[in-house]
Design a protein around this nucleic acid. Sequence first.
DNA 1: CATAAATATTTTGAGTTTGAAATATCTGTG
DNA 2: CACAGATATTTCAAACTCAAAATATTTATG
Lengths: 165, 165
Amino acid sequence: MNMNHSDDRRDQMDNETSDLSKARLRAWLQILKVSRKIEGELREKMRIEFGSTLPRFDVLAALYRERDGMRMSELSKSLMVSNGNVTGIVDRLVGEGMLVRVPVENDRRASIVRLTEAGEKDFAERALVHEGWVSELFSDLSASDADGLIRILRTISHHNEAPHD
Amino acid sequence: MNMNHSDDRRDQMDNETSDLSKARLRAWLQILKVSRKIEGELREKMRIEFGSTLPRFDVLAALYRERDGMRMSELSKSLMVSNGNVTGIVDRLVGEGMLVRVPVENDRRASIVRLTEAGEKDFAERALVHEGWVSELFSDLSASDADGLIRILRTISHHNEAPHD
DNA sequence: CATAAATATTTTGAGTTTGAAATATCTGTG
DNA sequence: CACAGATATTTCAAACTCAAAATATTTATG
């Protein structure tokens, strides 16, 4: 009966802080837990089976989807890592003969990175094995739960989308 | 009509590879995408608001839940990172006056790491702000979707639990 | 056309991360 | 008690990661 505006707001905050907010925090911590666990498993398998690493696999995967190659900036945006980071990974993959840097016509600042023939062939094989690993690690995930998971995660991604370009 | 055993198996594999297996791979990629995006946001906020980092926050959080302190090995197991990693993070947090290393009675190999009074106070404040950030980043996540997400992710965690110790 | 601003990439320095090796200590077996 | 193996932690080298600074080039503006 004696509630004023600040009481209202405080009560609302308290509820949010102790219930929904906590549930979201738990959800985030669970996402973190699963992604760390799975990344750890995949990293070890990559190392043992392919003598390679996850970041390299990610770069190869991005370039396998874009057979005409990508610019460094496109690559770093697509992988959500910094430009400087991609430089190092690509350097190593070039050293391994998986990638080549191709100069861009009419823009000498930029270069296109693309898979070599060997890189394409190697990655195609690795991708199949990788998919098998993931399916195994997620073998308790039914088709409907997979769909549910994707739907829920998309609502989160969309909210945190890069401000409209 | 003319199917033999190997045909059966191949068809089954093909179905799994092209359907359930692909759905699970998509689910994994979506987990990865969300966790990278959210980690990036939180990293930036940590840096700007607290002049600190996520790994340090994670260590403080683990020790805030265990006020009597933890051993280095417990800490690294709890955070799912390597021993050597924790050593460096703890070194820096000790340097900042947030943590202390306390020798363990009867075992001179080990030491217990725990929050200092200042560390406890600082972290308590940061944790509240952090929870607010997460709730904001997850603001499109309803209570029931948060619960659904947690349930599904738990089925994945449990499958990949450390082999019973 | 000069040149300021924008863009693409690399370099740099600090921090994080791993896996393996090294160090120190403890425990169990003879 | 000796000492082999187990355990706890640190050290190490290589890789990854970021944010900021530096470099090179292009574009737009006066």
